[in-house]
Structure formats: C-alpha cells, structure tokens
Design a protein around this nucleic acid. Structure first.
Length: 210
DNA sequence: TTCCGGGTCC
DNA sequence: GGACCCGGAA
C-alpha cells in the first residue's frame, strides 16, 4: 500500500515534498483497512498542501475498494489496479513495477520526454500520447521483470533530474552520446524528417513494425 | 504577478 | 479536452 500512496502523491508533487507527508501517512494508516476507516478531516489534514485534495479522498476510496474487492490486499495485476479509484495507467504500471517487481510499461511525463529526445530526436513529446509513442516505450522495456523495474526507475529519474523540460543538463547525461536530440544540436522546435512531427494530418503511422 | 506542469476523472 | 490545486519558474 505504501507504493500506492507514494505514487498517488507523486502524481503531482516532487519527491522532496512528498517524502515527509508519505512517512506520516504510512505511520498513521499502515494498511488499506486503516486508511479506509480514516475520517475525511484526518485524511485532508494529513495530505497537507500536496495539492489536489480530492486525490487524498480518492485514495481513501481506493483503500475501501481494496478492502471490499481484494480482502485488504493491494492487487498485483495491472487490470485490477486500473479498476481502483484514483489509479490510472501510470500508477497501475508503477505499482506493478515498484511494489511487486512485475514487468510493466511505466510511462510518465518524464519518460515521454526522455524517449522523445533520446530516441525520436525531438525536444518534447507530442501533447497527447500517441499509439506509436506508447508502442515505442513498450518495446524498449526489458523482458526480465527486475530489469524492467530498473528501467522504469532509471528512465523516470533521468527525466526528473537530468533530462528536464527546461535547461536539461546534457553534459551530465549518461546517454548524451547516443541522444538523437543532442546529436541533432538540441533543436528547440521539432522538425525531424521521419521520426517526429508531421505538419498536416495523414494516415496514422504504423510503420516501424518489423 | 502570471503562467505552467502533472495524472486522473468526467 | 478541461477541471482539479499547488509550488516554482518566468
């Protein structure tokens, strides 16, 4: 449950601010059953100023669902996690990887940016994730579950600490020498010939299979 | 002071 | 596609 709580908190807040709140939260409500029994006032107070207080309430609703549907134990499959309130595609994948060591495709905004730069060669990913982008992310995940979890953690951390949206620290980047965006001169606008933006609309690009 | 990022739900 | 909230960057 700790991973569920931390991932929901981290959905909108940097680690440094989440950490103390998370510790207090888990100390107070160590299990889904304990959280499910918490009062609204206590939950909101413990959430403090993390933002989106509705998510704190949804987290309690999630705990209730875990108690009702899964006997008080957080489910281990992505589909079951997705069905819980407050858990979307990112959090479900993150819980599978970081709580249970399973293989999943963890794609948050950091991962999207890292892949856009290193692989595609554009400064930023498209505004909304496309099927091709998710397919790319999926095919880069190692087969081995442990390696997959490490991949998820590494790609997210790279995006959070080095490959940042503004002022990326390319000299400190471990993959700078293979980063397509950097090799292209770190262009601010994305006008790659094939990999990236098509100006107009056209048939959906499904090529690349094979 | 304004603006923007960030994942989920509707 | 927008609302939700807040901190930090612009």
């Amino acid at each position: 449950m700790g991973v569920v709580v931390s991932e929901v908190m981290l959905q909108q807040t940097p680690v440094s601010r989440v950490e103390p709140r998370w510790r207090e939260w888990m100390e107070r409500w160590p299990t889904p059953a304990a959280l499910a029994a918490a009062t609204t006032a206590d939950v909101l107070r413990a959430w403090d100023r993390l933002g989106y207080p509705r998510r704190a309430l949804r987290l309690r609703t999630c705990a209730e669902a875990v108690v009702d549907r899964h006997g008080g134990r957080v489910p281990e499959t992505e589909a079951e996690l997705l069905a819980l309130p407050g858990i979307g595609t990112y959090t479900a994948a993150a819980v599978v990887a970081f709580a249970f060591g399973g293989r999943s495709v963890v794609v948050d905004t950091n991962v999207r940016r890292v892949l856009a730069r290193t692989v595609v060669g554009t400064a930023l990913p498209p505004p909304t994730p496309r099927a091709a982008e998710l397919a790319l992310a999926a095919r880069l995940v190692p087969d081995d579950p442990t390696a997959a979890a490490a991949w998820a953690a590494a790609s997210m951390e790279l995006g959070a600490t080095v490959c940042t949206a503004r002022a990326p620290r390319c000299p400190a980047c471990p993959v700078a020498d293979l980063c397509r965006w950097r090799l292209a001169g770190s262009p601010r606008t994305s006008t790659l010939p094939d990999a990236g933006g098509r100006p107009g609309r056209g048939p959906t690009v499904r090529s690349g299979a094979g």
